Simulated scan of single mutants.
Amino acid sequence: MTLTPKQQEIKDRYIAARGSWGAPWDTVLAVDPDFVAAYLDMYQVPWTKNELSDKFKELCYLAWNAAATHLHEPGIRAHMRRAIEFGATPAEIVEVLELAATLGIHTMNIGVPLLVEVLEERGRTGPAPLDARREELKAEFTRVRGYWHDFWNEMLELDPEMFGAYTEFSSVPWRTGALTPAEKELIYISYDIAATHLYVPGTKLHIRNALNHGATVGQILEVMEISSVLGIHAVTVGVPIMVEELSAAGKEVPR
């Protein structure tokens, strides 16, 4: 592909900023170079403000790429590689993945209140007072995780077995982890606020917790900026499919 001066300048800027260049961008650069430039400018916002370290920014990208609501393997690999280049340790990377693995509990966070609503339609009154075992579970969660939120009440009441298992599961990185409490909360925010999840109660909770642990407003905004580029996978996944289909149809592929 012979690039125009404008296309070459955009590609050079992209590689200088991102450290790599993927095949889909050759096609996009041929069809719509202005889009590549605009995307790069948006992507670079948190990299010019630098409220977070380069390593931690890459760990945030890794978190929402690896989260169950996205599971974008090329992004997982690319941002894990960059995090390692910036000095991330195996312990830090594994902890980010452990934190992302807690996303599944939102099934209970959303489902149990819906169950309670239906039970109330059928005459349920309550909640029932907590027995000694449930009080112990609540105290343990509050001690290890450093907070309590009312959306745990109904799960604790109706399913203490699952609540106890989740308390242990989610508490491991809080006992042995390599990230600070504020960093853990920022990781939670990165995938709760991502377009593939948009879990409002969790986002608000973890914003509050992050601030309580010393995170700044600028850091929280930077995490949101990082998560805001998730939509680009419409292009990076879709364009290679377009190239395949054009080739299969005997049509010219932009180069």
Results as ranks from 00 to 15, higher is better:
216 T>Y: 00
154 E>K: 10
219 Q>V: 06
214 G>V: 06
205 L>V: 09
226 I>D: 06
120 E>M: 04
217 V>S: 02
149 H>L: 13
100 A>D: 06
105 I>C: 02
122 R>N: 11
106 H>M: 03
134 R>H: 07
144 V>R: 09
110 I>G: 07
181 P>N: 04
95 E>R: 05
196 T>L: 01
139 A>C: 03
127 P>L: 03
161 E>G: 06
137 L>Q: 13
215 A>K: 06
142 T>S: 13
105 I>E: 04
113 P>N: 07
151 F>D: 15
219 Q>Y: 01
150 D>T: 15
202 G>L: 02
95 E>P: 04
171 S>W: 01
144 V>I: 15
180 T>F: 01
223 V>Q: 01
195 A>G: 12
180 T>I: 05
232 I>E: 10
195 A>I: 14
142 T>L: 02
165 A>P: 01
97 L>F: 06
121 E>V: 11
180 T>R: 08
175 R>K: 13
109 N>K: 11
227 S>C: 04
193 I>Y: 01
145 R>Y: 07
120 E>K: 13
212 N>K: 13
117 E>D: 14
214 G>N: 05
139 A>P: 03
213 H>E: 12
123 G>E: 04
230 L>H: 08
193 I>M: 05
107 T>G: 10
103 L>V: 13
168 E>A: 14
203 T>N: 03
185 E>C: 06
144 V>M: 01
213 H>G: 02
176 T>S: 08
236 T>S: 12
111 G>I: 04
167 T>E: 05
131 D>E: 11
160 P>I: 08
166 Y>S: 09
169 F>Y: 14
173 P>N: 10
126 G>E: 07
189 I>P: 02
99 L>N: 07
221 L>G: 06
155 M>A: 15
182 A>Y: 02
113 P>I: 08
228 S>E: 09
96 V>D: 03
172 V>L: 04
208 R>I: 12
221 L>Q: 09
115 L>Q: 12
169 F>P: 05
160 P>M: 03
190 S>N: 10
171 S>C: 06
140 E>V: 07
229 V>W: 00
211 L>V: 14
102 T>G: 06
181 P>C: 05
141 F>D: 11
98 E>C: 05
209 N>I: 10
230 L>E: 14
138 K>C: 07
124 R>V: 04
128 A>L: 10
152 W>D: 12
93 I>H: 02
126 G>I: 06
145 R>L: 13
205 L>K: 10
175 R>G: 09
231 G>D: 08
188 Y>V: 10
201 P>L: 08
220 I>D: 05
122 R>C: 07
201 P>N: 11
118 V>G: 07
157 E>F: 02
215 A>Q: 08
192 D>W: 01
220 I>Y: 00
206 H>L: 04
225 E>Q: 12
218 G>A: 13
135 E>S: 13
98 E>S: 09
100 A>W: 03
232 I>Q: 11
119 L>Q: 14
216 T>W: 00
188 Y>H: 14
128 A>W: 00
208 R>E: 15
192 D>S: 09
118 V>R: 07
174 W>F: 13
161 E>V: 15
217 V>A: 04
100 A>K: 05
132 A>S: 13
194 A>I: 12
155 M>N: 15
210 A>R: 06
123 G>C: 01
113 P>T: 09
